[in-house]
Write a protein that binds this DNA or RNA. Sequence first.
DNA 1: AACACGTACAACCGCACTCAG
DNA 2: GCTGAGTGCGGTTGTACGTGT
Length: 605
Amino acid sequence: MQTESEETRIQEKPIDLTSIEEGSSLSSLSGGNRVLKKGPWTVPEDAILLNYVKKHGEGNWNAVQKHTGLSRCGKSCRLRWANHLRPNLKKGSFTPEEEQLIIELHAKMGNKWARMAALVSLQILSDITGFVDLDNDDIDDIIARHNLIVLTAPSSRLPRKFSNELYFFAKKSTNMGLVVQMPGRTDNEIKNYWNTRIKRRQRAGLPLYPSNICYPVSEENQQYKNSSEYMLSDKQPNDHFQGSNFEIPDTVLNNFNATHGSLYSASSFSDVNVNSLLSQSFEPQSSTIGNSTLSYMKHSEKLYPTIPSSISDGLSTFAYMVVEPRGKQLTSILGYPCDPDPRKKNLQHCGGAIPGSRALLNGVFSAPGPILGTSDLELPSFQCTETEDSCWPPCSSTLEATDVLGNSPSETISLQSDCVSPRQSGLLEALVHEAQTISNTKKEPSIINNVDAYDLESESVNETKLESQSNPSISSLSRSAGVFSSSTSLISCGSVDECPHSNIFSNSNNMMATKIFSSHKVQERGTSFSVDFSRPGSLLGSVWLEYDSCRVREYSVLNDSFATLLGQDLCSNFKPVPVGTPSLTQGVGLDAYLWNKMPHACQMP
DNA sequence: AACACGTACAACCGCACTCAG
DNA sequence: GCTGAGTGCGGTTGTACGTGT
């Protein structure tokens, strides 16, 4: 927490490293006699770190000092980023619902702050979107009973670089999918909250857990310890939760089904993406990508009445991408103040780009983001709040397409695709197909990524033209391609007819092999699905696509995250769950994998 | 106004884990 | 298999702020 006086003091400092180092009254020596500053971060330091992440992405924090001269150790940089600079952090007081959830989670999990943070963030997602009303139920049970496929992992098992705020949801038998990067609470927040709460309660002589938290902590924790897969364990210790009446609002789903639409949701599609845009201004804008222009809509429900208000209400925090069915517009609904300007509607067919995404294209990309020093950002943190519509608003900046590795924009990716129709197919399925397509066509050396030709009406997975650069990662992903799908359409990642070039972005340098989850159902029907999760664009990028331009570059660290999450070895480790295999998802399709039921690679040991 | 105390939060520290070489 | 770098997590500490006396 930075006080006003402190902030004033900080802002008086010039933004140069000298001042930072000179101001290191609290400093220590590290290796090489490098003086490392301790204590509160200053605005210049934040700017340096932000700029670094913008250029290089997350990770390799120790390199920050080397590359920027910032007198902070890598751990400090990571912490600062994770707890304050990272976009989509929800700050402010905990809501009663959050508090209740924390209590429950702590009763079940103990001091697993990071994991609790992820789950609390999930609740936040629920609150905002209305898509998943967790209603304090056990999340695993919810996921199972509602046929959700969830790609998430307890943060402790997440591979490196994977944002533990990143979740993927897919409602089976629908065309809906959610890819969400949680506007979450940090573990530190929850930890602090809990500690203060404990102290308060202890001081007041109150029991640690309210009476409605009836399961003993020790027992739960013991079970938790015994289960390496708590989060999505087969049998949760609190099975009494299963009696809860959780329901995903079918109306939400039906609305989309009615239009054969699909929904993506993402609050932030890339930490780095957004972060990279921090220097951008806040101004509504449209984006031009190739021949396409992206538009942002402020009031999505007006333009797209099928979007439940509960969802649209959350657009200030989340970015949603609605993928309309074939013959309809592909519309991006971004979780930022969108421009209802009808003049920009003509751009909708071109799909969308996520503000802040690094999915920068050859065209002009609208990159929303606060400008340091020009926005009313809360200092020292830049995180969004639920109600901050101004968080990551569109801006009229043009970003040079530069990937996380600093590759030049000229290193573009040529994408070609036949139009995708999400009808009768889920985005995920389309993605699965995409990966397969990649696998089948990876031999084409000149282009990195493919674009799906995914005729959902016929459920054919042909007509896809993949032009993929000869890339080891592609090969890797192809080899590791597995299946992650259900018999029904899960996610429609495709574009529409008007968008013949559904492009997925990929950073060849960061591309990782695919991890694909297989449904026995899929295998039963012999469908060879494969999802290129090394190109999270398959999950995400496909909706913030460049449609007209055939050359795209993937700058999304989110993609990296997905790729990392999905890893490189899943396929090899993956063992399809046999039909009839007992599952926690009793009565639920086995393709609704929970973590402990997912392919091994999903279960980070 | 000054002080003490409690609260909230940022940041640091130590340990453990992962992964590449 | 070993080692070191990088990273994540939980515990702890430091500090600013609010409030009551």
